[in-house]
């Protein structure tokens, strides 16, 4: 994949499929590193699943026999001198279950990819799962973008979904404005 935003979309989809209600996504670019963190309250993984996670021939899905999401992410991280760490508590172990993934990339490394269309990724996630409370933050050179779906839901009330096209269009502009603070 040629944009970091696509890796982010792909990895966060795992949290969505794990049945999470709250998903925190953060991307912090500082000095040498870009650190991407996802924290969810989904069903989590067993130790067995966690061990096999970076094996491309392991997947829980039924439609095909390979799972490339985490292996792709790990490959990009390691190619740029970074790493991926995943902690997970399965729902059979504790009521306080979920998964936290931290990926670190050497952001100036020649093998790193452009950040790409992060707004497109956030819009796609909200469109697909408007009921999930996504909290998004991306801090980089000259911008600090934040979006909290709880805040938007508090304004919209119960009747209106975040997936309504008018609302998605507003979110898109809201994010784009924050990405280019000089363009006020």
């Amino acid at each position: 994949m040629d944009e970091l935003s696509l890796y982010v979309l792909d990895i966060v989809m795992n949290s969505v499929r794990a049945g999470a209600e709250h998903i925190e996504i953060s991307i912090i670019e500082e000095g040498e590193w870009l650190t991407f963190t996802v924290k969810d309250d989904g069903c989590g993984m067993t130790e067995e699943q966690l061990k096999k996670l970076s094996d491309p021939f392991f997947t829980t899905r039924k439609t095909r026999k390979v799972g490339l999401g985490v292996p792709f992410l790990r490959m990009l991280a390691e190619m740029t001198g970074g790493s991926v760490e995943i902690k997970s508590v399965h729902e059979s172990v504790s009521g306080d279950h979920g998964t936290e993934l931290v990926a670190r990339f050497g952001r100036h490394h020649i093998d790193f990819v452009p950040t790409g269309d992060m707004t497109g990724t956030v819009i796609t996630l909200i469109q697909g799962s408007p009921d999930i409370d996504f909290v998004y933050r991306h801090k980089g050179d000259g911008f600090d973008v934040r979006l909290d779906c709880n805040e938007l839901k508090a304004v919209l009330g119960d009747g209106i979904s975040l997936a309504e096209p008018e609302v998605l269009a507003w979110i898109r502009e809201y994010l784009n404005d924050q990405y280019s603070p000089s363009g006020e």
């Binding site: 696509l6 979309l9 989809m13 899905r61 999401g69 269309d117 497109g120 796609t124 096209p165």
Partner: peptide, 23 residues
């Protein structure tokens, strides 16, 4: 389709084109 295979092949702009076009 928005799994790894779809995303890697370019499904995100396709999805957004449908969402915006329909609207």
């Amino acid at each position: 389709g928005m799994a790894t295979c779809g995303i890697a092949a370019g499904a995100r702009p396709v999805l957004n084109a449908f969402v915006e076009g329909i609207s």
